[in-house]
Nucleic acid binder design. Structure first.
Length: 542
RNA sequence: AGGACCAUAGCCAAGCGGUAAGGCAACGGACUUUGACUCCGUCAUCGGUGGUUCGAAUCCACCUGGCCCUGCCA
């Protein structure tokens, strides 16, 4: 499902003949990596256009040469591609600098814009406050001729940055501060990634953006809620420049994810301070981070579409994304058994020197994925929490003394006794197996208490599991410095075992998802594998 | 406080005057070679108070709560 309220607007605009084709755009400023919040904007823009057989343009908003960085451009393109979208065109805000400039000249000629000599601080003073109106700049009433000359000189580089700006003449007493003669051109003396040193004056967002939209024929310009109060200015620019088409700005709420930060500034700070390894650290909510953590583009897309959007800033628990990942992977991926916190099980009635190999499906729900061999011997490991000596209650479906469980893909075993260490922790379980109960043999004379996974101690491989927790502490306090907000447990490595069929690596890195282990060796960037487990870590029996 | 926007279940979210969709989570139950998956079932009178109306989550007023706005950032 895709945003209803925007879709409805589009439907009406099509029906009324206002537009005959929907064109949307995703306009990132190339100064950061994309995060899941951007993914929502991307998905929304592309899906909405797709609904109406329209187009979506990727436009790099590069009106400020002081901020953009070239290296982010490729990253953004890659992320969009990764999400499965292909923009109809890739454009740059700077493509329209000439038009922007000519229209500014036109506005000056119409007496709607003027060159101001006020400094930044003076301008602030003149602007007034939230409760008091502003007062007009002493330069507000310069003649058209003087303004034209001055603006021309600004363009030619006769003035230093900060010396002069071009402002719109709107209303210094408006209750909307954005309408109090907003600056639309400032002088920046920096090389621009696209236009080189051609320009000394650069348009500001509020002026450039509506024009870019209009020049590209964007019909619906989606942005976040903080631009609501910019809309009158957006419309003012459109109304006063008579561009070739009339775009409409529509705002929607931002997406927030619990336990993490979705803001360019913080993400940058995390990286700069070395609190994470880089933008693609698997704990990061960036698209590259999520990818490395094991998320698939499909799962992110489904997640985004499931949440929908409205004019509310939403705060969604991180683990609600898990469902969509598991849903996407469950039929696509090979599954393996693993044990993170092992207890040794000795099968007392199984020959000491024997190892059996059984064929077991890679994915019980999808036989197309084939099968692999799993092994069984007299020494096994099972998960510590899969054994409780005294069966705690009737809901308990794992191993306890005197009870039988099925080892997945193998035999029933019955726990006969166990050893304890000085702290009372179980060290070894002694069990017997029943030869008749081999998985797949059709044995059904008895029902086991449950089924648990295991690995064969004689053939298994050591593994490291990365356990990811919330990047921020649970009692996060935004007032603290970032260093103190980070959850020290956000990345925990646990050593355990995986079954021998765990192909190549002697050491795998697995990442915990809620109902299994999602393995994604992010260093070698290998494909993902879900590791079976009888229960999630977060869920414990009672 | 001047202005803007918003307020539907634990979290998202439909609904636009005619008597509360859906997803996630949770909880029951069935099934089962993973307590998974699948399947069945349960889970809100719409921030509050007044008003308009035959009838309101939907309109109006007030209140409360949240969020945003004083860059020559986007």
């Amino acid at each position: 499902m895709i945003s209803n309220f925007i879709k409805t607007i589009m439907e009406e605009d099509l029906k009324s003949g206002k537009h005959d084709k929907i064109i949307t755009r995703f306009p990132p400023e190339p100064n950061a990596y994309l995060h899941i919040g951007h993914a929502r904007a991307i998905i929304t823009n592309f899906e909405l256009a797709k609904c109406f057989d329209g187009d979506t343009i990727l436009r790099f908003d590069d009106t400020n040469p002081a901020k953009e960085e070239k290296r982010f451009m490729d990253a953004i393109i890659n992320d969009i591609k990764w999400l499965g979208y292909t923009p109809k065109r890739v454009t740059f805000g700077s493509d329209y600098f000439d038009e922007d400039y000519n229209l500014a000249v036109k506005l000056i000629k119409e007496g709607k814009a003027y060159v101001d000599d006020l400094t930044k601080d003076e301008m602030k003073e003149y602007r007034g406050t939230l409760t008091e109106p502003g007062k007009p700049s002493p330069y507000r009433d310069r003649s058209v001729e003087e303004n034209l000359k001055l603006f021309e000189e600004m363009k030619e580089g006769k003035y230093a940055p900060g010396e002069k700006t071009l402002r719109l003449k709107i209303d210094m007493s408006s209750s909307n501060l954005n309408m109090r003669d907003p600056a639309i051109y400032r002088i920046i003396d920096k090389e621009h990634a696209h236009t080189g040193d051609k320009w000394k004056v650069y348009p500001l967002y509020d002026y450039a953006h509506p024009l870019q939209d209009a020049f590209e024929g964007i019909t619906h310009s989606l942005c976040s809620l903080e631009y609501v109060e910019h809309r009158p200015l957006y419309d003012w620019v459109i109304d006063n420049t008579n561009p070739p088409s009339i775009p409409r700005q529509i705002e929607f709420g931002r997406l927030n994810i619990e336990g993490t930060i979705l803001s360019k500034r913080y993400l940058k700070e995390l990286v700069d301070k070395g609190l994470v390894s880089d933008y693609d650290d698997p704990r990061m909510p960036t698209l590259v981070g999520l990818k490395r953590r094991g998320f698939t583009p499909e799962s992110i897309k489904e997640f985004v579409l499931s949440t929908g959007l409205s004019r509310i800033n939403s705060e969604i628990p991180f683990n609600s994304i898990d469902h969509f990942l598991m849903d996407d992977l469950k039929l696509k991926v090979n599954r393996r058994m693993a044990v993170l916190n092992p207890i040794k099980v000795i099968i007392t009635n199984y020959p000491e020197d024997k190892i059996e190999y059984f064929d077991f499906p890679n994915n019980l729900e999808n036989e197309e994925l084939g099968s692999r061999k799993i092994s069984f011997s007299n020494t096994l490991y099972i998960e510590r929490e899969d054994f409780v000596p005294e069966k705690p209650n009737n809901k308990f479906k794992r191993l306890s003394l005197g009870a039988e469980v099925r080892l997945m893909g193998a035999y029933f075993i019955k726990a006969e006794s166990c050893d304890y260490d000085e702290n009372g922790n179980v060290t070894t379980i002694y069990a017997t197996y029943d030869k008749e109960t081999l998985s797949g043999s059709g044995f059904n004379a008895r029902k086991p208490q449950g089924t648990i996974s295991y690995v064969d101690a004689k053939t298994c491989k050591k593994a490291k599991f990365n356990l990811f927790e919330s990047l921020l502490k649970e009692d996060d306090n935004a007032d603290l410095p970032l260093e103190e907000r980070i959850n020290p447990e956000s990345l925990k490595v646990v050593e355990g075992f995986v079954e021998s069929a765990f192909d190549s690596t002697p050491e795998v890195k697995c990442q915990i998802m809620r109902n299994g282990y999602y393995s994604n060796d992010y260093e070698s960037k290998e494909d993902s594998i879900v590791v079976n487990r009888t229960v999630s870590l977060k869920q414990s029996f009672k």
